[in-house]
């Protein structure tokens, strides 16, 4: 191997090593920054999680467009990803402008123009701390319900009668199919620390899975042939031949041989 070629290869390796170690540190930093994003409450129409991280150019035009000064840009070194628009509902909630000016100001599509109706936005979901909610304690509060811009849908009241000489409990219940996560309830909550909070859906929402069937919500008979492949169950006529996998109604199956 000639000296020139050896020198070239060594230099190549030196450069590659510098670039990869530097790149590794840099990538770690980026990952740490991006990791903070599950806690952020973002403007209406924001793309989900990583897609938003990729798309947002951190220009702050949504912040300028917001007429209520709700939106802020996270500075470097904060708890949220650098330069991200976010809001803190206890300070200033989103007042759900019907024209969605923040989304219209976004040049990149990080706030998706697919959002046509502000009431379809899902910035987060309200959750109630039932231990500290005044209504749950038996007081007449229900401020969150009254302040909710989609009251009756996003927050409903359940009445629970109590014994004589106590009025019924009026308990606010949040419904995820209507709650936009605007945070107006959080702003309005009269407790010292709000007993209702907005959290990103991923942090609080569970998922029951497809294998649960709520019998009382179904019109067809509960037990049918079970298809492990997960295909939608079909109702088949009961058969009298017990050969092969057992089919038919549970009563038939249990009564077999009697």
């Amino acid at each position: 191997m000639s000296a020139d070629r050896r020198d070239f290869l060594v230099r190549l390796m030196q450069g590659a090593t510098l670039a990869s170690t530097g790149g590794l540190g840099w990538a770690y930093l980026l990952r740490q920054e991006a990791r903070a994003q599950p806690f952020a409450l973002r403007p209406p129409g924001a793309l989900p999680g990583d897609d938003f991280n990729a798309a947002c150019i951190k220009c702050g035009q949504c912040v300028v467009a917001c007429p209520f000064d709700t939106l802020k840009l996270e500075p470097a070194g904060g708890n949220l990803p650098i330069g991200m628009p976010f809001f803190e509902p206890r300070q200033i909630p989103c007042y759900l402008c019907p024209t969605i000016p923040c989304m219209k100001a976004c040049p990149t599509g990080a706030l998706s123009p697919k959002l046509k109706d502000i009431n379809d936005s899902r910035m987060g979901l309200a959750v109630i701390d039932t231990e500290n909610c005044l209504s749950w304690k038996g007081l007449r509060c229900e401020i969150c319900h009254r302040e909710c811009p989609i009251k009756g849908k996003a927050i409903t009241l359940e009445t629970h009668p109590r014994q004589i000489s106590k009025h019924a409990m009026f308990i606010p219940v949040v419904h995820s199919n209507a709650c936009t996560g605007c945070g107006i309830c959080v702003r309005a909550c009269p407790t010292t620390e709000p007993a209702i909070r907005i959290l990103p859906h991923a942090l609080i929402q569970g998922k029951i899975g497809d294998h649960y069937r709520l019998g009382w919500t179904r019109e067809d008979s509960i037990t049918q042939e079970f298809d492990a492949s997960g295909a939608a169950p079909t109702i088949s006529a009961p058969t009298n031949a017990p050969s092969g996998p057992v089919k038919g109604k549970a009563t038939d199956y249990l009564n077999e041989g009697l």
Binding site: A27, R31, A54, G83
Partner: peptide
């Protein structure tokens, strides 16, 4: 790194962006 990490690699650490953003939108690190 932008391809590998799925975020705009320089924009997320850019001192240029930091300075401009923080003068306009509020101070930070």
């Amino acid at each position: 790194l932008s391809v590998l990490t799925g975020v705009a690699a320089f924009e997320w650490v850019s001192p240029v962006g930091m300075m401009h953003r923080e003068i306009i939108f509020g101070l930070g690190f």
